[in-house]
Design a protein around this nucleic acid. Structure first.
Lengths: 229, 229
DNA sequence: CAGGATTTTTATACCCGGTCAACACTTAAT
DNA sequence: ATTAAGTGTTGACCGGGTATAAAAATCCTG
């Protein structure tokens, strides 16, 4: 998931102190992205052609593909900057802190500030993008698989590098479980936001869920579901 | 992952006791599938066009799409039959058995018989398909995301149905972690098979890895990676 | 400010996956 | 034999994506 700001197309720095040529590029990129997201939100991802976006952006089709490698990147592009976040959190954690604790604390902090990457954001643009993703199978697939999976690979590499025992299997499993927990949590938060609930109202439950999730990863499933049911 | 037999195109039953017309359909389906996989294995997924497959199969392009909804399904189609396996295993487990134990035992059994779904199979056709999937990002993504994720959803639903406490979060998390473990294991096995190792030789290590993986899910990560490294 | 060098944009044509609609063929039943 | 149904075929078409080369905008230098 990891849906981020959504307003940053390549750059958050809109400094006008640039070679004048860069400014135009940034502006057109933003214009294209904005028209695309608007059109998508109005009529759905598959119901809007790239040619249409190009026309509405007063730009040729080629230019669109010049800025965004594919149609999907018009929606998902901005998110891909945060791929290495989990790995970075683990790398930069305080000494003596476990991997689980580091990621838990980071996630809880992110929740507290309604970071879109947690799914707990009711900003209009973010909501539009999230709704779009959940409504479009191709996008949903690419966020979970292509994206979350890459992050998992990075995390596994980081864990392996730090694991004194150099146990690859454990590193991969740990990464998989931690990312799975994150993904589950963000997914739940996003779905909740899509129902129209305000982020602040959902915060307590989200915090609780996050704590429980990481606790589960930490202590395991045990004999879950072994009841004589 | 969950790569299955690979030889079953829609039907494993090649009974000739069918309405004579069905036989032709099955035969052409198999022919198309076989030519496709062969061509893919020779030159790569993206380097073979559907038109080419159609020509080589002595069939029109439309006919190919008639049998297989998309080009990707030419490779992945046969696997989609086993989506509900994890959910079924949990549903049909012996009373008093935990979800983890049920899935662990099933996986270990599947390993012992070199079930392709475990990744531990060195059958030629299976290897071809697996190699193809790992070499083609689009295919890899769809197997992990589209496929494994659906299985996870089914498993979560099953767990929720059986969880006396009706705790949705726990069910989702448990499903996510169990599927993540499975996916990690099958991925490792597949990669190992791709190196040319014989399945029988890799069996002991695979069994050990599986036991450790499920044990980790059962007992949690604890303070993993908390060493003062 | 002129003008060439560089970069960006555009137009065009094309490939491929996938869909649609009309037609032709085979086959089974009447 | 005729019809009706189901398939396969054909050909046109759409949309995403790429390649190429021309045109336009920008930048740098004199």
């Amino acid at each position: 998931m990891e849906t981020r700001t959504g307003t940053d197309v390549g750059l958050d720095l809109d400094l006008d102190a640039l070679p004048l040529r860069e400014r135009k590029k940034i502006r057109t990129a933003r214009r294209i992205w904005r028209t695309a997201v608007t059109l998508f939100a109005e009529r759905g991802f598959d119901q809007v052609s790239v040619a249409e976006i190009a026309a509405a952006s007063e730009v040729s089709k080629m230019t669109v593909f010049n800025y965004f490698p594919s149609k999907e990147d018009l929606v998902l592009g901005p998110m891909e900057h945060h791929l290495d976040e989990p790995a970075r959190v683990v790398r930069e954690r305080a000494a003596g802190t476990s991997a689980v604790a580091a990621l838990r604390e980071q996630f809880l902090s992110a929740l507290a500030v309604f970071d879109p990457a947690t799914g707990l954001s009711d900003q209009q643009v973010v909501l539009d993008v999230v709704r779009l993703i959940h409504r479009t199978p191709a996008l949903l697939m690419r966020t979970t698989a292509g994206f979350d999976h890459q992050a998992q690979a990075l995390l596994a590499a980081e864990l392996l590098a730090q694991d004194p025992a150099h146990d690859e299997l454990t590193a991969q499993l740990a990464a998989a479980q931690l990312m799975a927990a994150r993904l589950t949590l963000t997914g739940r938060n996003q779905r909740r936001m899509l129902t129209g609930e305000r982020a602040e109202d959902a915060l307590p439950a989200a915090l609780d869920a996050a704590r429980r999730a990481f606790a589960l990863v930490e202590r395991g499933l045990g004999d879950y579901c072994a009841g004589t049911a």
